[in-house]
C-alpha cells in the first residue's frame, strides 16, 4: 500500500513542475504545448494494452524528446528525469 503522504507529495511536485514550465515558456507557448503532447502520447501508449508488447513510447524516448524540447534548460530537464520511472 502506498502511504497517502507520498501520493500528495508527488502530486504537489507535479503541479509545481508544470507551473514552472508554463512560466518558463510563457513567451513560447508552442514549447509548453509540445511538452503536453509528449506526455499525452506517452500516457496513451501506457494505458493502451493493445500497444503491448509493441509499446509506443519508452521512457527513454520520452526523455529524448523532452531533452530536445528543453535544450538549454538543463534544470527543467534534470527535474523531469526525477519523474521518469527508469530515468
Amino acid at each position: 500500500p502506498t502511504p497517502p503522504e507520498s501520493d500528495s507529495l508527488e502530486f504537489h511536485n507535479a503541479i509545481s513542475y508544470v507551473n514552472k514550465i508554463k512560466t518558463r515558456f510563457l513567451e513560447r507557448p508552442e514549447i509548453y504545448r509540445s511538452f503536453l503532447e509528449i506526455l499525452h502520447t506517452y500516457q496513451k501508449d501506457q494505458l493502451n494494452p493493445k500497444s503491448r508488447p509493441f509499446r509506443g513510447m519508452s521512457e527513454e524516448e520520452v526523455f529524448t524528446e523532452v531533452a530536445n524540447l528543453f535544450r538549454g534548460q538543463e534544470d527543467l530537464l534534470s527535474e523531469f528525469g526525477q519523474f521518469l520511472p527508469e530515468a
Partner: peptide, 27 residues
C-alpha cells in the same frame, strides 16, 4: 494558487503517475 487548464491538469496527472511508478520500481 494556480490557473490550470484541463490540459495542464492532465499533465499533472501523467507526471504524478510517472513519479508513483518510479517510486514503486525503486522500492
Amino acid at each position: 494558487s494556480y490557473d490550470f487548464t484541463p490540459m495542464d491538469s492532465s499533465a499533472v496527472y501523467v507526471l504524478s503517475s510517472m513519479a508513483r511508478q518510479r517510486r514503486a520500481s525503486l522500492s
